[in-house]
Simulated assay, not measured.
Amino acid sequence: MKKFNGGLTVDEFTQNMKPGQVALELLNEIPDIGFWIKDRDGRFVFLNHAYYEAFSRGAEIGMTDEDIHTPELAKVYRADEKKIVETGESIRHKMELVTMRTGAIEWRSTTKIPIYDRDDKIMGTAGISRKIDQVHPLPSDYRAIGQLVEYIHQNVGESLSVSSLAAHSGMSISTLERRFHKHLGTTPRGFIQQARIAAACDLLANSQLNIGEISLQTGFQEHASFTRSFERIMHMTPSVYRRYYRSSD
């Protein structure tokens, strides 16, 4: 290890420092890069100001991605963290879609690493996320998927189908399927269903609409079909979700 002024190595110098006095305080001052730490179960332990202000939509310590992001995107983030915890391998410079506080969806470059305890066991993960530099435009397939994701969320009440998405985007169905699987880990049909359920969750929690009205507003033509889809994804019925969410306020 190279020594510097005074004959100390960098390791020797940092070992003598009081823990925590530099890193987290400075990370809070970085305006454009989101930083977070999570435990093994995906609960936030630390969020810097940039993450909280830009991405979180009200994140707090102890919450998970499922609490603050749409279910289909949260599922992708959680899969990454589980892989890191299981293998100890970092994920570096991954392009991923992120839900912004404004409700918009944006491509970010994300790096995630394992965090070890004093016994060298993985106790969680940490990550940073930054907006892609506009000097280096996104490849066309990334732009196209980002635009499609926003289009789906804005039109969940319409008659969306894989063929209509392919026509809207100018892709073949096989290309559409391949890009959704690559970037989002699901099929276009599965993503549409998840987006509709995400919209339904918001309406169940924050509106006075009855379940039949919510079913229609989120693109389900039959109440029974809505209930089956909701229960399959959320593992509870719409009425139970509504009662649970409101009782926790």
Rank of each mutant, 00 (worst) to 15 (best):
R40Q: 14
R40G: 09
R40M: 08
D41W: 08
D41E: 15
D41F: 12
G42L: 01
G42W: 00
G42F: 00
G42I: 01
G42N: 05
G42A: 04
R43P: 05
R43N: 15
R43S: 10
R43V: 06
R43G: 04
R43C: 13
F44E: 01
F44S: 02
F44N: 01
F44P: 01
F44I: 02
V45L: 15
V45A: 12
F46L: 12
F46T: 08
F46R: 09
F46V: 09
F46N: 06
L47A: 04
N48T: 03
N48R: 01
H49I: 08
H49C: 08
H49T: 14
A50R: 08
A50M: 07
A50V: 06
A50C: 12
A50N: 06
Y51S: 05
Y52C: 08
Y52N: 13
Y52T: 14
Y52F: 12
E53M: 14
E53N: 15
E53C: 08
E53D: 15
A54H: 13
A54C: 09
A54G: 11
F55W: 12
F55M: 12
F55G: 06
F55T: 03
F55H: 12
F55E: 10
S56T: 08
S56Q: 03
S56R: 02
S56P: 07
S56M: 02
S56I: 02
R57N: 11
R57Q: 09
R57E: 07
R57I: 00
R57G: 05
R57M: 07
G58L: 01
G58F: 04
A59V: 00
A59W: 00
A59S: 05
A59D: 00
E60G: 05
E60N: 06
E60P: 00
E60S: 06
I61N: 03
I61W: 03
I61S: 04
I61G: 04
I61V: 13
I61F: 06
G62P: 02
G62A: 02
G62F: 01
G62Y: 02
M63H: 10
M63N: 05
M63V: 01
M63C: 04
T64H: 04
T64D: 01
D65C: 03
D65T: 00
D65I: 00
E66A: 13
E66V: 05
E66K: 10
D67N: 15
I68Y: 09
I68C: 15
H69N: 14
H69Y: 14
H69P: 04
H69K: 13
T70V: 15
T70L: 14
P71R: 11
P71S: 13
E72A: 15
E72Y: 11
L73G: 04
L73N: 07
L73V: 10
A74L: 04
K75V: 05
K75Y: 12
K75P: 02
K75N: 11
K75D: 10
K75T: 09
V76W: 03
Y77G: 02
Y77D: 13
Y77R: 11
Y77S: 11
Y77N: 11
R78F: 11
R78L: 14
R78I: 13
R78S: 10
R78H: 14
R78N: 14
R78E: 13
A79R: 14
A79P: 07
A79V: 09
A79K: 15
A79Q: 13
A79D: 13
